[in-house]
Amino acid sequence: MSTLIADGREIALDKDGFLCELADWSPAVATALAEREGISLGEVHWAVLAVLRDFYREFQLSPATRPLVKYTAVRLGPEVGNSAQLNRLFNGTPAKLAAKLAGLPKPTNCI
């Protein structure tokens, strides 16, 4: 358990740095979470995070890498929706890290 200060609030994180309460998420929270990972969120990052939040809204679960790549390709095109690009954007662990920054629960089928 740790906490994150963003939006002038104190936000609870679990031991892996995921939000304890999904409702705590905001763009400012995402920016603060990304800083902890050494990532400065660019336009493409934001697009992927939005796609992930849509994925969660639709399927009520966090995607593993394959479905994340597939779904991103459908939504943002193959230039973003491929594993090389997603790996580059999210430090090599897109399913886990992008879910974290998007305020989703930790993917269950993820090593």
């Binding site: 639709e58 399927f59 009520q60 679960l61 995607p63 394959r66 479905p67």
Partner: peptide, 10 residues
């Protein structure tokens, strides 16, 4: 909702 994801999970 999870069942809808079967296709995306391959």
């Amino acid at each position: 909702a999870n069942l809808q994801a079967l296709d995306l999970f391959g």
